[in-house]
């Protein structure tokens, strides 16, 4: 899929690399292409480049073509995603987009004159959540859990694996995945491209409010899994879910519990002890390093 959207010269260069090691490609108009290939590297003509000068540089038209192809030649059909600054490909690859934001009546209309893209390639790391898993449930069920990590530290990979493990472990539990950006399940034609377990239902492309309200009504879930809590609406949706007696597993960007307490909207949730478990991930020993699991009283249950 990645090959279908990148310019030929980039594809030729990527042929020299192992795609399963590649987690990010950053393209900025006229600037060196940077890869996350188990570390930061430049992309040269034949794979990795030693320095900036030998790196491939994307032209403005090439960047437009990448977005055009990523939108399956129909940019207008991806308006809503573009407004939010990303496009998700069918296999869960997410393309973050930067450019000129068009605002009309205080609302973002679209992004035009694209200047850079960040292509993030999802990876399934089987059982990466196993160390944390025993602390996230007891005989009465799954705890309301918040996974905390800075950007690119493997939150999505972690909750994908956690969902799969929980789903396979508790056969009787119905798990609903509200996959707003289609990153968790990469669902295409009703079939999940990335494994979420045998007993998970996926609402892909739906915003969290829609997914939660309709999911609770129709799919009677016992656990709801969501990625990236950001807006006030997300927090309202979380409160609604918890009020319905449904457990929540969610993620958010933050370095640790201390930083989290200073983030908007979280202060109240923390005061209310809405979340019973906190899983902290970092990049310390590579993406997905489990720093620890804390309970609502700030007691470390698992520390690495």
């Amino acid at each position: 899929m990645l090959k279908n959207i990148l310019p030929m010269r980039f594809n030729r260069s990527l042929d020299f690399l192992k795609v399963d090691k590649l987690s990010e490609i950053r393209l900025r108009v006229g600037q060196p292409t940077v890869l996350n290939y188990g570390g930061r590297y430049y992309l040269g003509e034949n794979g990795l480049a030693d320095n900036e000068q030998n790196s491939l540089k994307v032209a403005s038209q090439e960047l437009n073509d990448i977005i055009f192809r990523a939108c399956e030649c129909s940019v207008y059909a991806h308006n809503e995603e573009l407004r939010q600054g990303y496009i998700t490909l069918n296999n869960g690859v997410r393309i973050g987009i930067c450019g000129e934001v068009v605002i009309e009546n205080n609302e973002v209309k679209t992004i035009k004159n694209f200047s850079s893209v960040n292509i993030r390639i999802p990876h399934e790391i089987k059982n990466c959540s196993l160390n944390a898993l025993p602390f996230l449930y007891d005989e009465s069920g799954v705890y309301n859990t918040l996974v905390i990590a800075p950007p690119g530290a493997g939150k999505t990979t972690f909750i994908r694996d956690l969902t799969a493990n929980l789903s396979d472990k508790f056969i009787a539990k119905n798990i609903l995945v509200v996959d707003e950006r289609n990153e968790l399940g990469a669902v295409l034609n009703g079939k999940a491209g990335l494994y979420l377990g045998k007993f998970a239902d996926v609402f892909s492309g739906a915003n969290k409010q829609f997914g939660i309200i309709n999911g609770i009504r129709t799919m009677t879930p016992e656990v709801i899994v969501l990625d990236e809590l950001i807006t006030a609406q997300d927090f309202e949706a979380i409160r609604y879910t918890m009020g319905c007696g449904v457990k929540v597993i969610a993620t958010t960007h933050s370095k640790d519990l201390f930083d989290l307490a200073h983030k908007p909207f979280f202060k109240d949730l923390l005061k209310e002890n809405a979340f019973e478990r906190f899983v902290v991930l970092s990049n310390r020993r590579g993406a997905g390093t489990l720093e620890g699991v804390w309970d609502k009283n700030n007691t470390c249950l698992y520390c690495s």
Binding site: N64, F68, C71, C73, S74, V75, Y76, A77, N79, L82, K109, T110, K112
Partner: peptide, 9 residues
């Protein structure tokens, strides 16, 4: 065709 957002298209 297909290169613009819906308004521009």
């Amino acid at each position: 065709l297909g290169r613009n957002d819906s308004n521009s298209q």
